[in-house]
């Protein structure tokens, strides 16, 4: 058993001895070394990393913004292009329609002109035929009639009158 009278003050472990001085110095050295060489770089690294993270977030925001604006621009361009294409198609359709209408009109005019030309030609030919008929039918008819009647119908005035009357009746019959 350990009894108080057996423990001299020197070996009472609650009483510090020379070790205390060594420990004081040793611990002071540890604190000094950490304060001087270890803590500052740690703080620096932490600050640097915080700064880097902040920077990265800022960059990210900027990149996102840029991407968005590029996308908007791109979409606007696409929309423009679509509009342009639609406009060109519309124009082409209108032009095509106009061309077709014009051509149709031209063809119609040409056809009309041809018909008109044909009509006038026919009329001219008819007039010609009528004129030549009128000349020939007179002499033919008088010759024929003279032969039948035996009477000379050489009297021009009478002959002409007869023929005229005949032709008039002929035209009426038509």
């Amino acid at each position: 058993m350990i009894t108080p009278d057996l423990i001299p003050l020197a070996s009472n472990f609650l009483v510090p001895n020379g070790t205390f001085i060594v420990e004081l110095i040793a611990f002071a050295i540890i604190v000094f070394l950490l304060a001087k060489f270890v803590i500052p770089p740690i703080n620096k690294a932490m600050t640097a990393r915080q700064e880097a993270i902040r920077q990265q977030f800022a960059d990210l925001d900027k990149a996102k913004e840029e991407a968005n604006s590029a996308k908007d621009e791109f979409e606007a361009q696409i929309a423009d292009a679509r509009k342009e294409a639609a406009r060109i198609r519309e124009d082409a359709r209108e032009q095509g329609a106009a061309i077709i209408a014009e051509l149709r009109e031209q063809a119609q005019a040409e056809a009309n002109r041809i018909v008109e030309h044909g009509k006038t030609q026919i009329e001219a030919e008819r007039q010609q035929a009528v004129a030549s008929l009128r000349a020939e039918v007179g002499s033919l008819a008088t010759g024929l009639a003279g032969r039948i009647v035996g009477e000379s119908l050489e009297d021009d005035a009478r002959q002409t009158r007869v023929v005229e009357r005949f032709l008039t009746e002929l035209e009426k019959a038509e």
Partner: peptide
């Protein structure tokens, strides 16, 4: 003066571990 040898050498060891870890970092 009396010096407790084991306390001192263990202080040195523990302190050295802390300081070395710090310096490695």
């Amino acid at each position: 003066m009396t010096f407790n040898a084991d306390t001192i050498w263990n202080t040195v060891i523990a302190g050295a571990i802390v300081v070395i870890l710090g310096f490695v970092l």
